[in-house]
Nucleic acid binder design. Structure first.
Length: 879
RNA sequence: GGAGGCAUAGCUCAGUCGGUUAGAGCACUUGCUUCACAUGCAAGGGGUCACAGGUUCGAGUCCUGUUGUCUCCACCA
């Protein structure tokens, strides 16, 4: 087959885009379904439609692409569904900010319909950006099946699910305290809130007791502005200090409202003053206390964070009001003291604004019944977390789950399909639009203004992208999906929701394995963030070092689930590896004649020992890489490919066969060419899932059978391709070469100074043909196997397989030789003693696996052979 | 308050079922214009595997405790 020359320097920018375009054009990413074959499917965690690719995406997509390319080469029906998420809050905020900046308008100024048009325009403008960025990474997603969470089909799925859950009584509307973001102007779910410890104060405030002048109750609060909404003060029923107060009436400071003192178990006597002001409308605990005691909800802070309680403070920002009210309390002598404290403050995960707990009417998913099968699936091992420890995080969350607030006071998203009748107040929930009230026939119907939490639609992603609620081939072929790949930070947001939605609507888990990875941090271990400005743009890395180097960096040097630090040093190391592979391939190509075939091997009888050795090593590598990839040990598998490529293939095998190759016309050269083409070809295939571009570029240059490496067959372990005897021979030769190099370096003998070698060895057959190796790799001018040799004027190098004599005349320092030999003898004797003890231990010999015991015996034999050589050497030196 | 991770070479990290003399990359030292590659080749130095116990024939690996560190969940005004 024809071969093609590779350019002299590895320059990924010259071919990555071209190869990717070709793969797309050929349709390799779209599976051709074959019912005989197993399926492997993945849905991408959809990035925000208007987002930009960051390192977290790059890691996530790289891991998925490794799995997908691996399975595709193994012949699975492999489907990777890509797509994007509408990201309600994030996207709406961006468009609103843009609107404010460019036109000085708010969304309310332009109105819902117009605003939504603007968001869709924004989506059209930026929605393709993240997709094209993904493509730069080389991901092999099936772009013909790309989805968006607000596509028609996915929206239909959302409506179907909402209506179904509502009909089952699992979705309800109710007045609850919700996390309200005054900046985003919407409710948030519990998972969308981040707590941070902040310095604050406890304000101790006196509440006068009605009708008992001079008598007060002192409450401590971190949020004095909520005082306006207090409708009671609570104490613990068992608190003797306040027993006689219960049932009495207090006068609310600054307001003058009369509020009762109630007894409630939830109050801790030993915290604060033991008296708690109850603000049911603005605190989750107070809300519940309020319900228990039938207290009124007095709303004093509105959705923008301003005081909405009539009077002096009306219209003030909550923090301004706090300041003024504290001053006023002080003036009235009602402020007892200000005690500094740190407390956890809730912030919006999108904009960072301090959350205002607010009682409001929201839609909820009742979680208890949905959570049960979702817990069982993981407990039973039906769904498996990799690494397993993340199942604990999941279960802990699932088992303590609270109802999920799914309504958002946004415009961008799936509008809740609930309709209110203005005449009879009936609420109708329906998949199709409602224009007439089914109860009273009125046409005064309004659809719910709120939209659904973004995670509501992404929870359906594993089946909505396969066509559900329609009955499709894709669902039958690819559901449940095989593996979900995502970061641990998103387990509660997304993974858990997909699990219960999948079980509820498909009667089947959405995926079998959840492969969890960690965060990509900067070189100092800090989280990459926009505000810190320490983020590294994956696209910059790609343009400088190539996508393959980036992918290598992200896939290596890190165990599953652990965070990793990203540094350009690592990318450079990866690029150097690519460069090494590139140049090794160039060397191979320079030697080919056009007769070779990357998938074939010469007849076994023609193979030399080194050929059999590398084939044995290759075979071992194939098995190990396959085993590790099956276990999601992508980093371990990659390290093994790296070691094989650099050490075994480049540093040893290529060097070993150079003498053969340079005699181009020989039969031996022909065999070497055939072997190395096969070994290189298989190595490229093993590496392809990690580094798709360079492997394809080289593969296409080599003689190859498949029109692309990405659809070539993945190498598989071949039990016949094991030659332990030849492998042992080569190990002996390599050990001797290393020992000679070592000694020469120690003695500062330059490689240019060649010297004759005399070998005394019981493995004469092994070393008979090693002359070429020794002259090339151990600076031998001549070489002779002898029965014994006079050591005068020689250095003597002892290994377990041979003793080598090098006549280096005046360079030999007898004293140094003696010292060195004695040291080595001591070391070897120590090892012999250690192993001897081990083997003399009855417990070890009887209980350890036979293979382990045998290995120890073998080691002992080698050490003993070495010791014999050293003792002889010492005897000569002492003569 | 509850749960979990991490602690191994100067740095960043691997170390799979408990079984080689504990490894890699980077950094460091020495030598090398060896005809694929200086983004390279060869050789080398560098470890109390946080600490203390325990289990075992055998522990970096399993168990208990301690210390340090990071994270998640919950949250009491």
């Amino acid at each position: 087959m024809a071969t093609r020359e590779l350019p002299k320097t590895y320059s990924p920018a010259d071919f990555e885009d071209r190869l990717y375009a070709n793969w797309c054009e050929k349709g390799y990413f779209t599976p051709e379904y074959d019912a005989e074959k197993p399926s492997f499917s993945i849905v991408i965690p959809p990035p925000n439609v208007t987002g930009q690719l960051h390192m977290g995406h790059a890691l996530d997509e790289t891991l998925q692409d490794i799995l997908v390319r691996y399975r595709r080469m193994q012949g699975y029906n492999t489907l990777w569904i890509p797509g994007t998420d509408h990201a309600g809050i994030a996207t709406q905020i961006k468009v609103e900010e843009n609107l404010r900046k460019e036109q000085g308008l708010t969304r309310h100024d332009v109105g819902r319909e117009k605003f939504l048009e603007m968001v869709w325009d924004w989506k059209k403008k930026y929605g393709s950006r993240i997709i094209s960025q993904l493509k730069k990474l080389g991901v092999s997603c099936d772009w013909t099946r790309e989805h968006f969470t607000m596509d028609e089909g996915l929206s239909a799925a959302v409506r179907r699910v909402f209506v179904s859950l509502y009909d089952k009584g699992l979705i309800y509307r109710g007045l609850r305290i919700t996390n309200w973001c005054p900046h985003c102007n919407t409710a948030l779910s519990d998972t969308e809130v981040e707590y941070r410890d902040e310095a604050g104060n406890f304000w101790h405030i006196r509440y006068p007791v009605k009708g008992e002048p001079g008598k007060y109750v002192i409450v401590a609060t971190t949020r004095p502005e909520t005082l306006l909404g207090d409708t009671a003060v609570a104490v613990n029923p068992d608190d003797d200090r306040y027993k006689d107060l219960v049932g009495k009436t207090l006068i609310l400071p600054l307001v003058g409202r009369e509020i009762p003192v109630v007894a409630d178990e939830a109050v801790l006597s030993d915290f604060g003053t033991g008296c708690v002001k109850i603000t049911p409308a603005h605190d989750p605990n107070d809300f519940e206390t309020g319900q228990r005691h039938g207290l009124e909800n007095v709303f004093v802070i509105d959705g923008t964070g301003k005081i909405c309680f009539p009077g002096k403070y009306f219209g003030m920002d909550r923090y301004e009001a706090r300041k003024v009210m504290v001053e006023d309390l002080e003036k009235e002598g009602l402020l007892v003291k200000i005690e500094p404290c740190t407390h956890a403050v809730a912030h919006c995960y999108r904009c960072g604004t301090v959350i205002e707990p607010l009682a409001s009417k929201q839609w909820f998913v009742a979680m208890k019944t949905l959570a049960e099968p979702a817990i069982k699936a993981v407990k039973d091992g039906d769904i498996r977390y990799v690494p397993d420890r993340f199942s604990k995080i999941y279960l802990n969350w699932m088992e303590n789950i609270r109802d999920w607030c799914i309504s958002r006071q946004l415009w961008w998203g799936h509008r809740i399909p609930a309709y209110y009748c203005d005449d009879c107040s009936e609420i109708t929930v329906s998949e199709s639009d409602v224009t007439v009230c089914p109860k009273c026939g009125s046409r005064k119907i309004r659809q719910e203004e709120d939209v659904l939490d973004t995670w509501f639609s992404s929870a359906l992603w594993p089946f909505s992208t396969l066509g559900w609620p329609k009955d499709t081939d894709d669902i039958r072929r690819y559901y449940p999906t095989s593996t979900l790949v995502t970061g641990y930070d998103i387990i509660t947001f997304w993974v858990s929701k997909m699990i219960f939605m999948g079980l509820e609507f498909m009667d089947e888990k959405p995926f079998t394995d959840v492969f969890i990875h960690g965060l990509v941090r900067d070189a100092q271990g800090r989280k990459m963030s926009k505000s810190l400005g320490n983020g590294i743009d994956p696209l910059d890395v790609i343009s400088q070092y190539g996508a393959d180097a980036l992918r290598y960096t992200l896939a290596s040097g890190n165990a599953p689930g652990n965070d990793m630090r990203f540094s350009t040093e690592k990318v450079e190391a990866a690029r150097n590896f690519a460069n090494k592979l590139w140049n090794a391939s160039r060397f191979v190509l320079m030697n080919l004649t056009g007769e070779e075939d990357g998938d074939d091997l010469p007849p076994e009888k023609d193979l030399e020992a080194e050929d059999k050795w590398i084939l044995t090593e290759l075979n071992r590598l194939i098995k190990s890489v396959t085993d590790n990839l099956d276990k999601y040990e992508v980093g371990v598998a990659l390290a093994e490919i790296y070691d094989f490529t650099w050490d075994i293939l480049c540093d040893w095998y290529i060097e070993l066969i150079k003498p053969r190759l340079f005699d181009r016309e020989s039969k031996s050269a022909e065999v070497a060419r055939k072997v190395i083409v096969r070994v290189l070809s298989d190595t490229l295939k093993l590496l392809h899932p990690y580094m798709p571009f360079i492997t394809e570029e080289i593969y296409l240059s080599l003689p190859h059978d498949s029109e692309s490496i990405m659809i070539a067959n993945y190498p598989s372990y071949d039990p016949k391709m094991n030659y332990p005897a030849d492998a042992a021979t080569m190990e002996r030769i390599i050990t001797v070469i290393r020992a000679i190099r070592n000694r020469r370096a120690e003695m500062n003998v330059p490689p240019s100074k060649k010297a004759k070698l005399y070998l005394v060895t019981p493995y004469a057959d092994d070393f008979q043909k090693a002359g070429a190796f020794l002259s090339k790799l151990a600076s031998a001018s001549e070489y002779e196997i002898v029965d014994n040799h006079e050591s005068d004027g020689c250095v003597r190098i002892v290994t377990d397989a041979a003793t080598v004599f090098i006549p280096l005349g005046e360079l030999v320092d007898l004293e140094k030789e003696k010292t060195r030999t004695e040291a080595e003898l001591a070391r070897v004797s120590g090892e012999i003693e250690r192993i001897g003890k081990k083997l003399a231990n009855e417990g070890f010999v009887s209980k350890a696996p036979a293979a382990v015991v045998d290995a120890e015996r073998e080691k002992l034999a080698k050490y003993e052979a070495t010791r014999a050589g050293l003792i002889e050497a010492l005897a000569k030196l002492n003569k």
